[in-house]
Every structure is written in structure tokens, then in C-alpha cells.
Design a protein around this nucleic acid. Structure first.
Length: 816
DNA sequence: ATAGGGTTAG
């Protein structure tokens, strides 16, 4: 074992001599009589059995005990979960209150029976602990352990498990049969780490460890990714001669996979002499999780060649790998095999197939399969919803949703997520309201979706409401929920809100910090974003790829060119992060915006990755901004090669031709666009007033107060013209006359939203607008002037960032 | 006699 650990030479334990792991102080219970411990554990178990057999009918005795328990102040009761399970149980553990008189003659069998009866009928942890104390005081003889054998398979709450662990650790010689059951009980609980503590106890005593404990222990090691401990277990298993037990070996394969060591997993796998379908399944899943799908298929074929017949489980694993690899043809072939094998009735397989088709973009095939099912399990319907969601088919998803008879939380969440993904956050929130009406309790995942819906919507009042909801319903302590709240506040234009959540978080991870850096960056506070980033080092948090995207983004949106270059270099050299396309994109953006177009183009030419639409798009945008037509047209052409329907590139090329008076080219470009049915993505804007969200499409008149709004627009334009405003039409398609061009600009949706905000003026409040596209130069000027003339703060979120207008100036310093 | 593998919302 020593040799094994040292040969890998990792971590602090190499060379250190120890058996098992350390047991935290809080779990050692001093002064416990060993016989009493065994007795108590047994009683604990009896109690569970009794509870199970009496599940529904509450006897008089139980009622009596409950009443007594409440009288003595205990309110914990893990047999009746409705009563909750308080921390008080632990607090009273060391000072139990005895509810009955101690017996004078403890050693009699009468007394033993009496106590045994008390124990088996005890209904709360508190009561059990009181009895425990009673045993300790009376020094009772050890009863038989037979009852233990059938028991520990009931589900348990974490607290009672840690209690039974502390009892367990004081049994000097637990038999392996019992200890394995307990280990398994721990491993399935919410705190699987207890398994390792119990295992460590057994090891410390040098006993109780047989071959059957290893699969369980390894499973836990894999779940908690404790690679050092895993290797110790590996070493011990080999030393004890279980190294060639197929169950142990399979556990080892999975353990190494769980710890991110696929090669070590494969090494164990390769030297196995007997591999059954589970072994193959574990190995295949390992490769699937790290995205090596070719290996998945190769292994699957190898498995079939070695005459192991695939079962439902392994089929579903391979199917899901096909989905993630977008390998439709292989997926279809397996579908065929499944049909022939008659396994298609398995709901796991059905949902795996549906979601595979969804990932491969073939919802027709998914629908075909779905239509054939006589009963449609919820999971399969949910897979259909998320399949349609992935493919942008909201209506089809909704149809499935509406046809479902029994809806669970997951399918509600899936439908909400679908709306968020398709940029329909209001519909998602509407569903959330319906959930409330139906009294369906959301969970953490639901909350993450709803919070994300609010972030997409960008409406601050909705955001505040959902934040209150989060706190009221006890989600406020969750790390991921808080991370989502930071993002939400940032996207709703409230940097203060984001900071407040950030500051109030007791625990932060790299996502938290990255989220806050992004929040500062999109609000134009690049210097603070960088400060926060540099603070990461003190916090012992390692920035990841995403963190660097945020920081580089901050630099590029504030023109911090040198800083950006430096950070990009440190990402590669100090943090060993290989730049991805997004990072190069940030650099192109950074340099392009700063009018260092040659350098930006050099990045595109020299980077080791093939430039994509985003890269060329960002170069093109920079060229448009700086009137660099030649390079711009080149970028536009590359862009159109990759995406022939790219609206921006078509408009830009056409406009360049016009600017250079190549009228024929310009006309041709426009005709081409018309033929292909390409038009600029229609702009829309939203404004939240009085808890209502109003949406405006460019040039549309469907708002009930449209006349008033357009009148207001004329009035405002008149005012602004007096302070020097002239509509700027240079980015409009050229085949319009000047008057039309001016209207095309004036009717931009954000101006309509702004005017509606001015009509519905709320005292002292600022106007918050959300826009789907990047704000155009004309609107930008317009907003600045209105903020001055009307003395009104305006906050506009566009596709990439926020603009805070105040007193004629914008927070972006006209650099966006 | 006891143990190891999977599906739907993020």
C-alpha cells in the first residue's frame, strides 16, 4: 500500500504512515461504554423497523411518546419528518434529560426487557439519546445483535446518520456484515463522506474490512473526488488480495474516473481478466464524461466482440454519448438494435433516445418515437420539451407540455427554461406564476431558471421581487442561487444590487468572482473590474477561462489596451490557459475598438484556431466604426463565406460599395439580400413601468398609446434640434431617400420606449430600457441629449453592455 | 447470503 501510494508520488500523504483517515473531533463521543454503544445502535435500528411497520397508523403509545417529547422540549423527530429535525438534538445529546426513573436493580432480565422495549418503540432521536444515557448509567449486559441484520437499509436523515456513526465508531468489533450495511447506508445519504469516516474507523481498528466494503467505499470516493484516499483504498484492496475481484476492480475504474483520472481507470480496466456488462458500462461512461466519444463507440464495439450482451443501462449510456457527440447515424443504428431486442419499453431508454435525437437536431425522429409510445412517461415528455427547446421550437414544446396529464416540477422547469432560451422571459415568469397558483413548490434549479428569466428580461422590479422570493423561501444561502442573483442584478442595470449580493455572500467561488467582474465590466467600471480581478490572488481563487473573458471584455470596452495585452499574456504564461476563440475574439475587439486594426488583423492571421463568425464580425464592426473600408470588406467577405445569410455583413458590404460610389455593387448586394430574404434583425426595446413590461418594435404602432408616443417623439426631436441634434443616418441601408432614412432612425425602438417613459413620467425615477441589438450612434446621442434637456437619468442595456446617461454624458465615454 | 453501471429541468 505504501509502495503504491509512493509510486504515484502525489499529495501530502506520500510517505506518511497512516491507516484510514482522520476522524474529526466532533464525531468522537467520549465516555461511551462499548457495550452500550452496540446496544444503542441496535435499538436505533429496531426503532426504524418499528416505525416502518407502523408507518400510517399512529398508536396511542406513539402519541404518548410524542407528547412527552414535546414536554421535555425536544422537537426533533426523524420518524415523522413533518415535525422537522432540529439542531437541538445534538445540543441535548451530552446532557440528556431522563424521562423515567432509573431502576434500582439494573442487571435483571426484567429490566433488560423493559429497556429493550423502550428502545424499540422510541420515536425520536432525543428520546433515544435519553435511553442511551440510561444504558450508560446502568451498565446493562450486551443483548443479541440479530436485529441489526435486517435493518440499516431505511432512508435516514443526515443528523441521525451522524449519530449512528458516532455510536458505530464505539463498537469495538462490529461484524463485517453489519458494517457493510452501515457503509452502504452512509453512501446513499446526503453526506456520503460519513462512509469514509466509518471506513476509517474500521481501518483504525484493523478489522471489519472484507471484500464487500470496497465497491461501496470506492463509489463514495468517486463521488467526493477524494483521489488520495482512493489510492489508499486501492492499495489496501490489493494488499488484502481483492485486487482481482471484478466488483472491486469495477469500483476502482469508476473511482479513478470520478477523480478525473481516465488513464488510471483504463489501466485498471485493461488488466482485468473478467469484464461484465457493468464494467464496460463504467468504462464507457468514463470516456463519455470527458467527451472522448470515439473511445465510447470503440469500447462499445469491443464489448460486443467480447460476447458481452448490451443491456438497457449500457444502451442508454451509449445513446446519450451519441447525442453529445452529435452522431445521429450511430444513434439511429442503436435505436434499431434496441427495437429488435424488445427493450424499447424502458423509459430510461426512451428518454435517452428522445434527448439524443434532440441533440442531433432531429426532432421529427424524436416525435415519431414519442408518437409510437402508448404510455408517455413524464421523463420522456420532458425530454421532448427540452429537445424542442434546444432546437428553438417553443410552440412544439408547449404543445407537448399542454398535452401532459401529470406534470412534475422538472417538466415545469424544462418548459420555463425553454422560454428563457428562446428569449421569451415573460412567458417563463408567467409559468412561474401558474406554478404558484397550483402550489407547486419550486426547488433550487427552478429558482436558477426563474432568476435567469429575470436577468434576460432586465426589469429591475421583477428582479427585486424574485430576490425577496428567494430569501423568503430559504434559497438565500445557496451559492449558485446567489451567483445567479449577481448576474441578474447586473443585467437588470443595478450594479448596487449585484454588489450587495456579492458582499453578503459567506462563501464565494470562482463563478461568484467572475460574475462580479462581468457585472462591473458591462457597466463600464473597468478599473474596478480589474481591481477585483487582481484581488483574486489574495483570495486564493484561481481564475478560469471565463474569468479571463470577463476581464478582457472589461479592458476592450474601456480601451485599456496595454492592460489587456498584459492580461492575455499572463493568462497563457502564468495560468497555463490555452486561449480559445473567445479570448482571441476579445483581443481582436480590444485592438479593433482602439483603432489598432493592423494588429487586430495580425491576431486573426496568426492565431492557431480557425477564425469563426464572431471573430470576423468583431473585426468588421471595428472597421466600420473606424471607416477602414478595405479591411472591413475583406472581413465581411470572410464572414459571408462562413454565414451566407449574415445580415450585418450584407448591410455593411452594400453600404461600403455605396460609400465608394460603386452604385452597381451596392444595388447588386441589396438585390441579393432581397432574393435571399435577408433583412436586418428587427430591433425591439422594453421598458418597465409600474411593474408592467412594455415592448416596442422598431417603427411599430401596435401600442395602445402609439399616437401619443409618436407625438411625443416629434416634440422631443424638436427640442433636441434646438440644442444641435441632427439625425445621423450613416448606418441605415442606402436605398431609401433622406426623409425615409431619417424616419428609419427616429423610429428606433429605444426612442419609442424612451418617449413612452417620458409620457408616463414617474417622479425621481430613472428610465430603464432594454434593447436587443447594439444601440446605434444616433440613439446614443439622442439619449445623451434627453438626459440633459429633461434632467433625467436613463439606463439602456444593449446587446453587449449598459449605458448610463446622465446630464448629457454616457458612462461608456462614447466608447462602445 | 452482502457489492459495481443509466434517463428528463441547470
Amino acid at each position: 500500500m505504501q509502495r503504491f501510494a509512493r509510486s504515484r508520488s502525489i499529495g501530502p500523504v506520500a510517505g506518511e504512515r497512516r491507516r484510514g483517515f482522520l476522524l474529526p473531533d466532533q464525531l468522537s463521543v467520549s465516555g461511551w461504554n462499548r457495550r452500550a454503544s452496540t446496544f444503542l445502535l441496535e435499538a436505533f435500528v429496531c426503532r426504524r423497523l418499528a416505525a416502518l411497520s407502523e408507518k400510517r397508523r399512529t398508536s396511542n403509545r406513539t402519541k404518548h411518546l410524542q407528547i412527552r417529547m414535546h414536554e421535555s422540549g425536544g422537537e426533533d423527530d426523524d420518524l415523522f419528518p413533518a415535525n422537522g429535525f432540529g439542531a437541538q438534538a445534538m445540543a441535548t445529546a451530552s446532557h440528556p434529560v431522563l424521562p423515567f426513573t432509573p431502576h434500582q436493580n439494573p442487571a435483571t432480565s426484567h429490566h433488560h426487557h423493559h429497556l429493550h422495549h423502550q428502545l424499540t418503540s422510541a420515536t425520536s432521536l432525543t428520546h433515544l439519546k435519553q435511553l442511551h444515557a440510561q444504558i450508560l448509567r446502568s451498565n446493562l449486559p450486551l443483548p443479541s445483535t440479530s436485529l441489526l441484520l435486517h435493518t440499516l437499509s431505511l432512508s435516514s436523515s443526515p443528523l441521525s446518520l451522524s449519530y449512528s456513526l458516532s455510536v458505530f465508531t464505539h463498537i469495538p468489533k462490529p461484524n463485517p456484515n453489519l458494517s457493510n450495511k452501515l457503509l452502504r447506508e452512509f453512501s446513499n445519504s446526503r453526506e456520503p463522506y460519513n462512509t469514509l469516516l466509518a471506513y476509517s474507523q474500521l481501518r483504525g481498528k484493523g478489522l471489519g474490512v472484507d471484500r464487500f466494503c470496497f465497491p461501496t467505499v470506492l463509489k463514495v470516493v468517486s463521488r467526493v473526488k477524494a483521489v488520495i484516499e482512493g489510492m489508499e483504498v486501492h492499495g489496501l484492496a490489493v494488499k488484502l488480495g481483492f485486487g482481482d475481484d471484478p466488483f472491486v476492480e469495477t469500483g476502482l475504474v469508476r473511482m479513478y474516473e470520478g477523480c478525473g483520472r481516465i488513464l488510471d481507470a483504463r489501466r485498471v480496466f485493461d488488466k482485468m481478466s473478467h469484464r461484465d456488462v457493468v464494467t464496460w458500462s463504467v468504462m464507457i461512461n468514463g470516456y463519455s464524461q470527458v467527451g472522448l466519444f470515439d473511445d465510447v463507440l470503440a469500447l462499445f464495439e469491443a464489448m460486443k466482440s467480447s460476447n458481452v450482451e448490451p443491456d438497457e443501462v449500457i444502451f442508454s449510456s451509449v445513446i446519450s454519448a451519441c447525442g453529445r457527440a452529435r452522431n445521429l447515424s450511430y444513434g439511429k443504428a442503436i435505436h434499431e438494435s434496441i427495437t429488435q431486442s424488445g427493450m424499447l419499453t424502458d423509459p430510461y431508454l426512451q428518454s435517452a433516445l428522445v434527448s439524443m435525437y434532440g441533440s442531433c437536431g432531429s426532432m421529427e425522429l424524436a416525435q415519431n418515437l414519442y408518437d409510437q409510445l402508448s404510455t408517455k412517461p413524464i421523463v420522456v415528455s420532458t425530454a421532448m420539451i427540452s429537445g424542442y427547446s434546444k432546437n428553438g421550437q417553443v410552440e412544439a414544446a408547449r404543445l407537448i407540455f399542454d398535452q401532459m396529464t401529470g406534470k412534475d416540477l422538472v417538466c415545469w422547469s424544462a418548459m420555463m427554461s425553454c422560454y428563457v432560451e428562446s428569449e421569451k422571459p415573460l412567458e417563463a415568469l408567467e409559468l412561474f406564476n401558474q406554478m404558484q397558483v397550483r402550489r407547486i413548490k419550486p426547488d433550487k434549479v427552478t429558482m436558477l431558471i426563474v432568476i435567469s428569466a429575470c436577468a434576460h428580461l432586465g426589469a429591475l422590479k421583477h428582479a427585486k421581487w424574485i430576490h425577496e422570493y428567494v430569501d423568503r423561501h430559504g434559497f438565500g444561502g445557496d451559492l449558485r442561487v446567489n451567483n445567479a442573483l449577481i448576474d441578474m442584478y447586473a443585467k437588470c442595470g443595478s450594479l448596487e444590487g449585484a454588489i450587495e449580493v456579492f458582499d453578503g455572500m459567506p462563501r464565494k467561488n470562482v463563478v461568484t468572482w467572475t460574475g462580479m467582474v462581468t457585472a462591473l465590466a458591462i457597466h463600464g467600471e473597468a478599473v474596478n473590474a480589474l481591481k477585483l480581478f487582481y484581488q483574486l490572488e489574495n483570495e486564493n481563487i484561481k481564475p478560469n477561462e471565463v474569468t479571463f473573458v470577463s476581464v478582457l471584455y472589461a479592458c476592450s470596452h474601456s480601451g485599456l489596451v496595454d492592460e489587456g495585452r498584459k492580461i492575455f499574456a499572463s493568462m497563457v504564461e502564468e495560468y497555463n490557459i490555452t486561449p480559445k476563440l473567445v479570448h482571441y475574439g476579445c483581443m481582436v475587439d480590444l485592438l479593433g475598438r482602439a483603432n489598432l486594426l493592423t494588429e487586430a488583423f495580425e491576431i486573426v492571421e496568426q492565431m492557431p484556431l480557425e477564425p469563426n463568425v464572431v471573430i470576423w464580425g468583431s473585426l468588421m464592426a471595428a472597421c466600420r466604426f473606424h471607416d477602414e473600408f478595405e479591411l472591413g470588406e475583406f472581413a465581411a467577405k470572410r464572414l459571408l463565406e462562413l454565414d451566407p445569410d449574415h445580415d450585418g455583413a450584407h448591410v455593411f458590404s452594400s453600404n461600403i460599395s455605396a460609400k465608394e460610389r460603386r452604385w452597381e455593387d451596392a444595388r447588386e448586394a441589396r438585390i441579393l439580400m432581397k432574393q435571399k430574404g435577408i433583412s436586418k434583425e428587427r430591433g425591439w426595446s422594453r421598458i418597465e413601468l409600474n411593474n408592467e413590461v412594455h415592448e416596442f418594435l422598431m417603427g411599430a404602432r401596435n401600442h395602445e398609446q402609439a399616437d401619443e408616443i409618436y407625438a411625443k417623439l416629434n416634440e422631443v426631436v424638436g427640442e433636441l434640434k434646438q440644442v444641435g441634434y441632427a439625425p445621423n443616418t450613416c448606418n441605415v441601408l442606402v436605398d431609401l431617400d433622406e426623409d425615409e432614412k431619417e424616419k428609419a432612425v427616429l423610429w428606433h425602438s429605444e426612442k419609442l420606449a424612451l418617449c413612452y417613459g417620458l409620457i408616463r413620467e414617474e417622479e425621481g425615477s430613472c428610465i430603464r430600457i432594454v434593447k436587443n441589438l447594439r444601440i446605434c450612434e444616433d440613439c446614443h446621442t439622442f439619449m445623451k441629449l434627453v438626459s440633459k434637456v429633461h434632467q433625467k437619468n436613463i439606463i439602456v442595456r444593449d446587446r453587449t453592455r449598459f449605458h448610463h446617461y446622465k446630464d448629457g454624458l454616457c458612462s461608456c465615454n462614447d466608447y462602445w
